[in-house]
Design a protein around this nucleic acid. Sequence first.
DNA 1: TTGTACGCGTTATCAT
DNA 2: ATGATAACGCGTACAA
Lengths: 329, 329
Amino acid sequence: MDINTIATMAGVSRATVSRYLNNGYVSDEKRKRIAQIIQETGYVPSRQAQILRTGKTNVVGVIIPKINSTSISRMVSGLSKVLSAAGYQILLANTSNVAQTELKYLKLFSDTGSVDGIILSATMLTPEHVEALDNLAVPHVILGQKLDGHRCVYYDDYHAVRDVTLFALNHGSHPAFIGVTDEDTSAGLARHKGFLDACHARGIEPEARAQMVADFNVDSGYLICELLLAAYPEVDTLICATDRIAAGAMACLREYGKRIPEDVQVTGVGDSDLARVVTPTMTTVNHHYKSSGEEAARMLLDGLGKAKDSAQQVCMTYELFARGSTRWD
Amino acid sequence: MDINTIATMAGVSRATVSRYLNNGYVSDEKRKRIAQIIQETGYVPSRQAQILRTGKTNVVGVIIPKINSTSISRMVSGLSKVLSAAGYQILLANTSNVAQTELKYLKLFSDTGSVDGIILSATMLTPEHVEALDNLAVPHVILGQKLDGHRCVYYDDYHAVRDVTLFALNHGSHPAFIGVTDEDTSAGLARHKGFLDACHARGIEPEARAQMVADFNVDSGYLICELLLAAYPEVDTLICATDRIAAGAMACLREYGKRIPEDVQVTGVGDSDLARVVTPTMTTVNHHYKSSGEEAARMLLDGLGKAKDSAQQVCMTYELFARGSTRWD
DNA sequence: TTGTACGCGTTATCAT
DNA sequence: ATGATAACGCGTACAA
């Protein structure tokens, strides 16, 4: 069932059928006939042949480190909304947090011509990443990292954590930090630095025993908090790099008889559902993840010539949610 | 940079280059030469041309109602794992919970030949769905619904909620239910029926005012719980269709001075992070979402001839997690 | 307005 | 083992 069949059935040349489907430079009579036949046969043009012929796939490749994460699924949700509205489909590549795989997909998508554009949600940008991005043959947007000379949408992790730390230090003097690996430029390094600078601003120099590293989950938060309590029992303000970690830490503190926020204040990052269902509710700071996805998508559409004049670099704003896990005046 | 360029540069015919890339029926000498040129030029075959020629895309279409949901992102995570291991990529279609869009993508993927197979994560199967599925030109798996004559992986929502309700009713006599719309066959209808049958098994006939419908989120859980308390103040056992709803309900109960579980027991479905960070921890019942994604992917691979003899219909098992939000002996 | 002819880049068939 | 040659299904000058 190809365009030739339709053409002969309708008694026209296949060029006319093609025009009917695209430009539309066809007499009303033949137009009727062709519409009729297409209706009867249920003919649909071959996507692949169109792509080969036109060089346009109407697909954008989306590379993410993992799908099973609230922040990332929110981003993808935003991407999906804007891209599908513009007639694009999403080819999803899950790298399972392996940087090597990120590079693989980056080249694969670009070199084989299977996508019109790429959105890369990266946790870190190695020199290899930068090189691969520089050589990319298709328009692209980096989500979650800043890289000069490339379109990108990133988060102000530094100021976000700095702010929430300063806020908490209004009623605390022995801060501690549970972060994630500094290899993660945003969630790791920037948040850590935000914490440190906030402390310095208050004339506090956090000791090494007051700074620990956890994984991105509740259990790890609990576990590391346990270690922290042993190493630094005088802690009265606990800044965590994610809501999940903070939620685990809160469970741990409760287990050890610490009152929140009377004995220890706790803060997270993310404003996930978790933050609002724990007791007390969690003070946290929120990146606009879904909006960032939408913004990145618009940026890419700009690069594809389907939208105009969007900014090339956008730093997302954040919002501080002061709740029950920190002290008030 | 196409196969012809490589051929001439290597001084061979393009057929030989093609063989080099596929079967490999090439003399060592020419093999070296071709490898050399490909290395130098960085040539990569055009995916689209291969697809047009072979009819194989190595892509599976994944249709989901929304991405921003823990259960669904877990499924996609499982799909992604198995499919990418088998060399397949994922074309993601987010329908934003619009059944019409589900049908659209179903036909689009199938008719245009843009995917080798389809995985449909459906919340309900209308007659239109069934017809579309019956006429599908490519192998497919239905995730989350049972449909005879089709490969599918589904959840035992009925028994799951029945079990957790029976468990809770060991120490309660005034049960209530906060569900989601019955249009959702699994999360709505089946869970509701599980609740009702468990009640009947204990000789209880729940009144209408003890059964309410919420949306899939924390806020809605809070809100509906408020209505429930007004309509049915004697409730001592609250069965919720999702963890999120249950978490919202718990917050509401606390607000109204109800002790959990002394005054009111609460249960959820999902065993999400939420269930483990609320106070008290939440009794819930867990579907193996990620595994279901893996299973569905294997089933599809079977249909594609890349895996053998998998079952055609699989009902996932579930697990009951008895925690602090229900009473013990 | 319509039809003819060509090419998109690849794989597969067939001789050689 | 290798090289012509024919599809795969479509869009689009170009000529009519």
